[in-house]
């Protein structure tokens, strides 16, 4: 639609760009190369599934993409900005405003209700209480936890805790959702519901989603599959349309 632009716009930088990222734990004998020269580019609006054997560096990569950890070497550009050049508080702001993280180990606040856990990121976003609560309730309802708002983690099953963690990442409507095995503790029906939710967010809201999974079935909801082996990207290919 409309007349073609007189000059071509400069190309928008990719949202996430990893260039030669390495992450080495420990030193000398005990050295572990969790990531060994990873190159990965993800554009806004993509839905990427990451697979790979246990210990292949998937979580390590997610932590670096989520600005929770720093690479030992290499460059990470978020929306064209070199992340290594940002200070701690700038990283905090980046996480606060653009990223939603679902941890492999949930990481919910103990002795804190599901509702308050989901509200937490929005507190730091500075949303007023009433709006936080409305959004948190809606997010909990989306993951099928209505009626469990006032339970704290110790009163919830593993799968329910995982869904609280998903609701927490969704509720703030971040630009990117980074989900580390978000369906690891869920049955197939629940897993499919969560996947449908992510697909809808990706399709309708244009949210960028990066998800680690062990199941082909879950990966098939994504549109691109990246396979890690021994801290390197072994395969990177589009996902065949689900039938």
């Amino acid at each position: 639609m409309g007349a073609p632009l007189p000059v071509p716009l400069p190309p928008t930088p990719p949202l996430i760009e990893l260039r030669g990222i390495s992450r080495i734990y420990g030193q000398g004998e005990a050295e572990v190369r969790a990531l060994d020269g990873v190159d990965l580019t993800i554009h806004a609006g993509e839905f990427v599934a990451i697979m790979g054997p246990s210990g292949s560096g998937k979580s390590t990569a997610m932590n670096i993409i989520g600005c929770l950890d720093r690479p030992t070497s290499g460059h990470y550009l978020f929306n064209g900005v070199e992340v290594a050049g940002l200070n701690r508080d700038q990283l905090a702001l980046l996480r606060r405003h653009y990223l939603g993280f679902v941890f492999q180990g949930f990481n919910l606040l103990a002795r804190t209700t599901a509702l308050e856990n989901v509200e937490l990121p929005m507190i730091y976003k500075g949303l007023p209480r009433s709006e936080r609560q409305t959004r948190a309730r809606a997010a909990l309802a989306k993951v099928g936890l209505q009626g469990r708002e006032h339970h704290d983690p110790s009163q919830l099953s593993g799968g329910q805790q995982q869904r609280v963690a998903i609701a927490r990442a969704l509720a703030g409507e971040p630009m990117v959702i980074l989900a580390d095995e978000p369906t690891g503790n869920l049955d197939t029906t629940r897993s499919h519901e969560i996947m449908e939710l992510l697909v809808a967010l990706n399709r309708d809201e244009g949210m960028t989603i990066v998800m680690v999974t062990h199941e082909e079935d879950m990966a098939s909801f994504a549109r691109r599959l990246v396979v890690f082996v021994d801290g390197r990207v072994a395969r990177d290919e589009p996902v065949r349309e689900r039938v």
Binding site: G66, L68, R88, D89, A92, L93, R95, R96, H97, L99, F101, F103, N107, L108, L109, A110, L120, P121, Y124, K125, R168
Partner: peptide
């Protein structure tokens, strides 16, 4: 221990160290 994890969670969801 518990509080350090709590702080980790808060930082991860976007709290500044100062807050």
């Amino acid at each position: 221990t518990e509080r350090t994890r709590e702080i980790g969670i808060r930082l991860a969801v976007g709290a500044e160290a100062g807050q």
